[in-house]
């Protein structure tokens, strides 16, 4: 059975996206990509050093991988739009992860500015994936504005706290007809599997992989967890019950009628 994730004209086998901002050495990146089997990596334009080949993170990403530049550092829609256009001009393709953060303490995204940026960039031919605080109304506006997927946070960036926003993300999965990708907060493979089991289309992991003692091994574990979670979702897990099934049903007497 074919089960690919379709975004922006691409069909992806892997449902794990990987972030690159916290690696201790760029030379780890090819191994992480290979071990995780990811096909999409996100890179902050602010970090791309175009002048020095050995410092240019893009040179560590294999050719067949989709680069999703992100707008880290943008404080409003205008800056995000500018960053996206610079990245595209620089040859990073037409995908963009919009990340507009006006709160440096929690790094929580600004949904209002994000919606404005999506409107402009989607019309301009970008495949727009917005990082957002899980809110149904905001997600609907983002979908209407032309987003290609919705990327709610599971917990604050870098917190490794897991799927704290589970209930709200579940609502997005049920109501929004776009891929829902959990971005930020996933700290362990088991949490990635949990998110996939509830029907999200993919997860994006940065800190948990790049700060592990063995990033490639952790990347492999995440790849497998995402795959397992996806299969479990497709297989249709049995309903969980709070109590055991009673052997003497309360309505058993009705059968004799």
């Amino acid at each position: 059975m074919s089960d690919t994730l379709k975004i922006g004209g691409m069909e992806l086998e892997s449902r794990l996206f990987v972030g690159t901002g916290k690696f201790a050495d760029y030379r780890l990146i090819p191994d992480v990509i290979k071990a995780s089997k990811t096909q999409v990596v996100t890179v902050a334009l602010r970090r791309i050093d175009f002048d020095t080949p050995v410092e240019n993170i893009l040179n560590y990403v294999p050719q067949n991988i989709v680069i999703m530049p992100n707008t880290s550092g943008a404080r409003n829609a205008a800056e995000a739009v500018r960053i996206a256009r610079i990245a595209r001009e620089a040859g990073c393709g037409n995908w963009v992860k919009i990340e507009i953060v006006t709160d440096q303490k929690y790094l929580l995204p600004d949904n209002f500015e994000t919606i404005k940026a999506i409107e402009i960039l989607a019309k301009d031919g970008f495949v727009v994936l917005p990082y957002m605080s899980p809110d149904l109304m905001a997600a609907r506006r983002m979908a209407d504005a032309g987003a290609a997927a919705i990327m709610p946070l599971g917990a604050p960036i870098g917190s490794n706290r897991g799927l704290k926003t589970r209930e709200l993300v579940q609502i997005l999965v049920a109501e929004i007809d776009l891929p829902i990708i959990v971005d930020a907060g996933i700290g362990r493979p088991s949490e990635a599997a949990e998110a996939m089991e509830m029907g999200v289309a993919a997860v994006l992991v940065t800190t948990a992989i790049s700060t592990a003692d063995n990033p490639a091994l952790m990347a492999e574990a995440f790849g497998q967890a995402v795959e397992a979670g996806r299969k479990a979702y497709l297989a249709g897990p049995g309903a969980t019950q709070q109590f055991a099934s009673a052997s003497s049903p309360l309505t058993g007497f009705l059968r004799s009628e």
Partner: peptide, 9 residues
């Protein structure tokens, strides 16, 4: 650790 040369554009 990784020495970062560029963190703004």
């Amino acid at each position: 650790y990784k020495a970062i040369f560029k963190d703004w554009h």
